[in-house]
Amino acid sequence: VTVHVDGVEYDFDNPEEALKFAKKVAEDKNGTYEVHGNQIRVT
């Protein structure tokens, strides 16, 4: 699973970890996250 944040890609073997990371980053920057299959984009 790849999490995209501001043009940087973070790869996770564990989808739950990826989702947790995306949620935290989105909260920290008052943004949102979208899941597209095995890609998660934080905006």
Rank of each mutant, 00 (worst) to 15 (best):
V1M: 14
V1S: 06
V1I: 12
T2M: 06
T2W: 06
T2S: 08
T2V: 12
T2K: 10
T2I: 11
T2Q: 07
V3I: 03
H4C: 15
H4I: 14
H4Y: 14
H4D: 06
V5A: 05
V5P: 02
V5M: 06
D6Y: 08
D6M: 10
D6I: 03
D6V: 03
D6S: 06
D6R: 05
G7V: 03
G7S: 06
G7F: 05
G7Y: 04
G7N: 07
G7Q: 05
V8H: 11
V8W: 09
V8M: 12
V8G: 05
E9H: 12
E9W: 12
Y10T: 03
Y10G: 00
Y10D: 01
Y10C: 08
Y10F: 11
Y10A: 02
Y10K: 03
D11R: 15
D11M: 15
D11T: 14
F12K: 00
F12T: 00
F12W: 03
D13L: 10
D13H: 09
D13M: 09
D13R: 09
N14F: 06
N14L: 07
N14Q: 06
P15Q: 13
P15A: 14
P15K: 13
E16T: 09
E16K: 08
E16Q: 10
E16C: 14
E17M: 08
E17H: 05
E17W: 05
A18P: 00
A18E: 00
A18I: 00
A18W: 02
L19E: 06
L19V: 07
L19F: 09
L19A: 04
K20C: 14
F21T: 00
F21Y: 07
F21G: 00
F21P: 00
A22I: 03
A22Q: 00
A22D: 00
A22F: 02
A22H: 00
K23P: 00
K23Q: 13
K23N: 05
K23M: 12
K24W: 10
K24S: 10
K24R: 11
K24C: 13
K24G: 07
K24Y: 08
V25S: 08
V25Q: 11
V25K: 09
A26K: 03
A26F: 03
A26Y: 03
E27N: 11
E27W: 12
E27D: 10
E27V: 09
D28M: 14
D28N: 09
D28G: 10
D28L: 13
D28Y: 12
K29C: 14
K29G: 10
K29T: 14
K29I: 15
N30E: 07
N30T: 04
G31E: 04
G31D: 03
G31W: 11
G31N: 03
G31T: 07
T32M: 09
T32D: 06
T32A: 09
T32L: 08
T32F: 12
Y33D: 01
Y33R: 01
Y33H: 03
Y33L: 11
E34K: 08
E34W: 11
V35K: 06
V35F: 08
V35E: 04
V35S: 05
H36R: 12
H36T: 11
G37H: 05
G37E: 07
N38V: 05
N38A: 06
N38W: 05
N38P: 04
N38T: 09
Q39M: 12
Q39C: 14
Q39G: 05
I40K: 01
I40G: 01
R41I: 15
R41L: 15
R41Y: 15
R41E: 08
R41K: 13
V42N: 01
T43I: 15
T43W: 15
T43N: 12
T43Q: 11
T43R: 12
